[in-house]
């Protein structure tokens, strides 16, 4: 992935109110995630199935640090969980967006229900724009469902005199941990 595309993504992502950090490998990203969650004082996390997150050894690391992961299930959803953890299928550099495609163990709910959302993103999943991502999708995943969620910044409502209130239904904070692979 070319550096200009990564920089374009970071610029666009921050423009819409997202925060970010970038690390040289998945191990450093794992440490960064633990530090971020500790800083936020969130020990209970609504998360994708941990084996589906793109960082090796994450389950043990989180467990050792005392974090408890909850699988998203709408029948037993705890609305008090304040932090969601997911990866992203792709990111779009030009708009600063991340794309979530649901599958077994990869629900949208961690990205929608808690007030904070952390996204783990290997830089090789950043595409220049929507057309580039669609092209790749057609080549490799044409048979899959097109149920996708494109997230561009935190949730907000500006219904009252256009004053922005963050965290309306979705997260108030969206933090992305980028890492090289």
């Amino acid at each position: 992935m070319s550096e200009p595309i990564i920089k374009t993504f970071i610029n666009a992502w921050t423009r819409w109110g997202g925060t970010w950090e970038r690390w040289e490998n998945p191990i450093a990203a794992r440490l960064a995630l633990l530090r971020y969650l500790q800083d936020q004082h969130r020990m209970e996390i609504l998360s994708w199935q941990v084996e589906l997150l793109p960082i090796p050894g994450l389950a043990a690391a989180l467990n050792d640090a005392g974090f408890k992961l909850f699988p998203p299930d709408r029948r037993r959803l705890n609305p008090d969980l304040a932090m969601g953890l997911t990866a992203a299928d792709a990111a779009l550099a030009d708009n600063g967006s991340v794309i979530l495609v649901p599958a077994q163990g990869r629900s949208w709910l961690p990205a929608l229900i808690p007030i904070g959302h952390v996204i783990l993103l290997p830089v090789n999943r950043i595409y220049a724009d929507m057309a580039a991502w669609r092209g790749d999708w057609r080549r490799t995943r044409a048979d899959e469902s097109l149920r996708t969620l494109i997230i561009t910044g935190p949730s907000f409502s500006d219904d009252i005199e256009r004053h922005k209130h963050f965290g309306m239904f979705g997260p108030r904070r969206t933090h992305i941990i980028l890492f090289d692979v």
């Binding site: 819409w16 709408r74 599958a103 969620l149 494109i150 561009t152 979705g170």
Partner: peptide
Amino acid sequence: AYVTHLQRPAPREID
């Protein structure tokens, strides 16, 4: 902030 694409029912998904 959110573009939601919907295509088919997901009877076996958790959401």
